[in-house]
Each structure stands twice: as C-alpha cells, then as structure tokens.
Write a protein that binds this DNA or RNA. Structure first.
Lengths: 349, 349
DNA sequence: GTGACAATTTGTAACGTTTCAGTATATAGA
DNA sequence: TCTATATACTGAAACGTTACAAATTGTCAC
C-alpha cells in the first residue's frame, strides 16, 4: 500500500516521445492545465501559459494524433479522391503539390483515396464518411448533378470540388473558366482566317463539358463560323481512338480547318491524326489546345496553347476545404481561374 | 445503488458507428472476446468466432483506426515521400496508382509526404519517424550513400527505395535496370551506324546516374564507338537549359550522331535543340529515350524508345514495404525491372 | 463427490487526449 | 469576519482498442 500510487505516474520523464504527462511532470502542473495552456485557453495564467509553451517547444512536444483523433474525432486529414484510370497525369502530380503547399504548415496530412473504373464513384466517399477517415475531401471530375457532392452536403462533411456542379446547392469549388477558354480559342482561330471548327470536348458527363461546348458554340455564332461535329470522341478516349477519328474526319470532303482541344495529350493525338491524313498543321489546319505543362510548343511550334495551372487549382481547393473546416461560409470559398490568352510559339531567348 | 452500473454500458446499440462494445452487446459476449474472435485468436470457440464475425459483417463493423493506433502504435499508413520540384510528372501519378492498387484490399492508407528543394531530404523522414506517422515509407531519388535509408534502418522502420543504394546495407528496393537500358541503347544506335554518342544522364547524386553511365561507357568500349561528353546538363535541368546546351553541342565540329536520354521530357528538349541547330532527327542524329507513357512516338516518329513502367514500380515498392512490415526478410524484397528492347515507331493498325 | 486440468470467457488497465465538474486560493464587497 | 465571486488550477472519465491476469465452466480420472 505504500508504493503503489506513486510508481505508475512517475517515470513521465522516460525516453519515449513526450506526452502531456511528460510536460505535466516537468512543469509540476496537472495534465489538464498543460493541455489548456498549449491551446491558449483563457483561464490559464499568462506566466503559466508561457512557461508550458516554452518547455513544450524545448523538448519538441507534438500532440499524439491518435489521442486527439480518438478523443475529438478530428483526424487532421484531407483526402484527395482520384480516379485511377481517367485523371490527367499532370493533374495528379500538380494538384498534389498544390494541396501540399497549402497544408505544409498546418497539422494536416494528405491521403490519396483512389477508385477505379469499375467502382461507383460514390464508394470511396462513402468509405471516408463511414469510417470518419478525413476532416475534408477534395473531389475531381465533377458532374452537374454530382451524387458525391450531394452526399457530402447531406452529412455535413467539408469538401471542395474541382469543377462546378449545377444542382442549386452551394459548396466550395475551384474551376477553370472553360467557357472563356473555348470562346477565346474560337475567336483566335477565326481571327487567323479559320472558318470550320471542330471541338474535342471533355466527356459529356462532366460539368465542364457543357461549359466548354457553350463557349464554343456561342463564339461560333458570334463570329459567324461553322462547327464541324466531332463528338464521337472526348478527351477521355484513348490516344489511338482520337487519332483514328481525327484522321477519318480530316479525310472527309468537308473537314475542319481548326480544332479546339481540351487536353494536351489529346492534342498530340489530333495532330497525329491530321498528319496521318496527309495534312499539315499551320497550313491546312490550326489547333488551339489547353495544356498544363509547357510541352506542346516543343511538340509542334505551330500549336496554339492556353495554359491551365493545376498546381494553383490544388492550392485553391485545399484553401477552400480548410476554410470550410475553419467555419467559413461554403459560398465564400468558390473561385474561378481565368485562362491565359491564346499563345503562339515564341523562340527561346 | 440499484441502477448505477447498468446505465453506462447499456446504450451500446446506439446509432453511431458500431464499436466492439456494440458487438459485445449484440452477441451478449464481453468486449475482449469479441476483439479476439475478430482476429481469429486460438482460444475462442469455433462457434463463437463464427457468430461474432457474422454479426460484425452484418452491421458493417470497422475497427476504429484511432483506437487501434493509440493502443498498438500501428498506424496502417504507408507514406510516399516526394520531392515537390524534381520528380518526373508521370512518376508521381503512376507510382501512386501502383501503390494504391496493392494496398486497395488492405487496411492501409497512403499519405503523401512532400518536401521541397530548400529542405533537407531527411526532414520529412525525421518527421514521420518522430511522430510515428507511418508503418512504412517509400522513398525515391535514391542516392548511393543515402542518409534517409541509413536513418530508417537505424530506427528499424520498414521502407523501400525506388532505386538502389550502395552502402553495404540491405533493404528492400525496386529499380529499373538502367545499366541494361544504356547498353541496349548504345548497341542499338551503333547497330544503325551511329558512332559518336552523347548521354543525357540522371543527376550525378542519384544512384542510377552511375548505373546508366556505366552501361553507356561499357557498351561503348564493347562496340568501339566514341563518347561525346555532354555532362553539363542532366535530366534534372530545365527544358530550356537542355535545349540550349543540346543546340550548342550540335553546332560544334565534332558533334554526336546519337543520343541516349534518361527521361522523356528531356528528350523533347534534346530534339528541340537538335532542330534549333538545323539538323534533322533520323537523318543527322538518332535518339534513344526512356519513356513512361506512350507519347514520344506521337512527338517524333523517328525517336527510339524504351519503356519504364512506374505503375509497376509503385506496386512493387508497396509490396516490398508491406512484406517487410509483415515480417519478411528485407533482403528478399528487392526487385529489378528489365527494360523492353529498343522500340522504333510502329504505325497503328 | 472431489480435485485437476483444459477450454472458454471476462474485467481491468492502459495508450494520449479533451471535457466535465469540480477544488483551492485570492480578491472584493458587505 | 464573513460570504460572494473571479481566477487558476486539477482529477476523473471517456473516446475504441488490445494485453494481461484472472475467473468461470465443463470434463475426466480417481
């Protein structure tokens, strides 16, 4: 009965990671006081607060994530949900870096939650929510009527979408202004004398399909040029498919003299198709393409490009999610990125 | 004294996520029994085991990660450590997908831990170890004498490296056989009559620099061809730099008639530089390049390519780390990926 | 019927954190 | 001097899990 209570608490100075108990032992305070002192709670004396924080910094105290998570439910995790087959390559790496940049000096970790073609896109979201694995979610490939956004809104889980929805519901998003991209592309092409334009659009199910298509057709009627239908393929199709369809199209009597392409990889295929048909880029046809890294001008100098910055998108999305978690109004966390002008090749200095 | 102990445990049937307590309540067993029944402990009766597992499946029980992690220290997390400035773009996305594929039906989550140019590469590793944030780590950009590998070995943290080290220490790795790549490339180039070859190598500090270089020079002396030094740039340099240096090189009296390039993006720059100097690919010079996605042949049909599969690398690395965590010998978790042969353009069917 | 033994099952404590409901001390008001 | 009130601090309980030590039950030999 003598040594009994004493022993168990004592060795708080042990060599393992410091915990609140360690700090309590070192400062001579109670665990509760230390906990509150570290988060600037009001009822802690100014000197005590400073003292605790000093010691904590000195010994490199870091709150145990599992402890916090178990007690509070807060995971300090943001999940990026990605389709393992269909995402644009540079999108994945750039968006991850953008997110990382923003969460770098926060306690947040980034987890990547993949889903494959065969799965319901709602599956990974359900998993995250049911297991409480993240405080916030970032989703891509957003649809006008997006079940994932609806689901997350219903459960009150903070999230942000890359691309907008169209359900009359308010949530954070970041989007590239694809309407503006398409109109600018059409204006540029007609400005250099092209009259019969084809659009390689995003997949129909995604919201930015109609944004792009509307910009394209609105600008066409504005300038009085013609659309050559090219909707048997989208940027989601394989390089080979796009190449083949392009070649078929270019062998017709009425063929486009201008293309607008929503993705860089697809543009490579379009150009290949054009050349398969024996035509020449810049002479017989011009192509305006979005790109996210600066490679298209190395590919063919005749290409016309508009840049989309995915790293920025990642940063904005992360900021939005953190903002929502922090209590900001979802409606105030929406942003739209304005396209650069259409850029022709410039010789390096 | 009558209702006192009773109340607190009772409402285990509540609507929140089911826990062991919920299962215990439903089966009429103790929490401990349920816990052990779920992990097939030997001292649980066969029928009890089945009953518990059935109920658990029915109500969709999932162990609380925070609870497990707090109690056992097991995080069920694999961390992929990436340099946010220098990684190859397709590497990031493919390796993530490769890892995801392998951990998909395990309880593991993948977290991405980034570090930037300015940081010591050891920083993120230290962070992971000190905070106990992961059960296993995957690192890239491996060096012959890699402080990260050494550090992790010292602490006994399971990890796998993309690329080998050369410290006389044993650890899991996955590597592409860059020696074989370089020798094959040289043999192919000399086979089509090229005699003066230049190598665009990986950065000197990485292990695969010397693998590549050795393969290159060994094959050169084997076939009796000459090296044109080109070591002012590496694949880590900017597109503009490589392009400029290539153009300079190609304007010299003694210029290469063949290139071996260790990365696809760099190859675009090499070709641009060749063309800047007024020379023609396939006629004046041939280029053999590694690529990780099938785009180089769209770029220039004259290019000769060797494929490196990063998705496979990700999968192998994940398998290695999980293997080590599962108790396998580190030395048994090493793999080398054999290059494809050198591939010329093939017209699509 | 008793004791020994194996086969099952169980309560308690602990991981590190935060919240709740306090206690102790000082300060002020009467 | 006493009660009220604010200030500063504190122990106990809980989140969900697993390890430990112990308890309960049944079986069998004697």
């Amino acid at each position: 009965m003598d040594r009994h209570q004493t022993e168990k608490d004592d060795e708080a100075s042990g060599q393992g990671r410091p915990t609140l108990k360690t700090l309590a032992f070192m400062t001579g305070l109670g665990v509760t006081t230390v906990s509150r002192a570290l988060k600037d709670a009001p009822e802690i004396g100014a000197e005590t607060r400073r003292r605790v924080q000093l010691v904590a910094r000195q010994i490199g105290y870091r709150p145990n994530r599992a402890g916090v998570r178990l007690r509070t439910g807060k995971t300090n995790v943001i999940s990026l949900v990605l389709n393992t087959e269909r995402e644009i390559m540079s999108f994945v790496s750039d968006i991850i870096y953008g997110v990382s940049e923003v969460i770098a000096d926060t306690p947040y970790h980034l987890i990547v939650t993949p889903y494959s073609r065969s799965q319901d896109p709602l599956d990974p979201i359900r998993y995250l929510v049911e297991t409480g694995s993240a405080d916030g979610v970032i989703i891509s490939r957003t649809q006008p009527n997006d079940p994932r956004a609806r689901y997350l809104l219903e459960r009150g889980i903070p999230f942000a979408t890359h691309g907008r929805t169209d359900m009359g519901l308010i949530h954070p998003y970041h989007d590239f202004d694809n309407y503006a991209f398409a109109t600018e592309a059409v204006r540029h092409l007609t400005g250099i004398g092209r009259r019969r334009l084809a659009l390689l659009a995003p997949p129909v199910e995604l919201t930015y399909h109609s944004h792009t298509l509307n910009g394209f057709t609105d600008a066409l009627s504005e300038v009085g040029a013609n659309e050559i239908p090219f909707n048997t393929v989208s940027v989601d199709h394989s390089i080979e498919q796009i190449r083949m369809r392009t070649a078929q199209l270019m062998r017709r009597d009425v063929r486009p003299d201008g293309f607008v392409s929503s993705a860089a990889a697809a543009t490579l295929a379009i150009v290949a198709g054009i050349e398969d048909a024996g035509l020449k880029l810049g002479r017989d046809v011009d192509v305006v393409s979005k790109q996210s890294s600066d490679l298209l001008h190395l590919f063919r100098r005749e290409l016309l490009v508009v840049n989309e910055n995915f790293r920025l998108a990642g940063a904005e999305l992360a900021r939005s999610v953190l903002g929502w978690i922090g209590g900001a109004a979802p409606g105030s966390l929406q942003s739209l990125s304005v396209p650069t002008e259409v850029l022709a090749y410039r010789r390096p200095d």
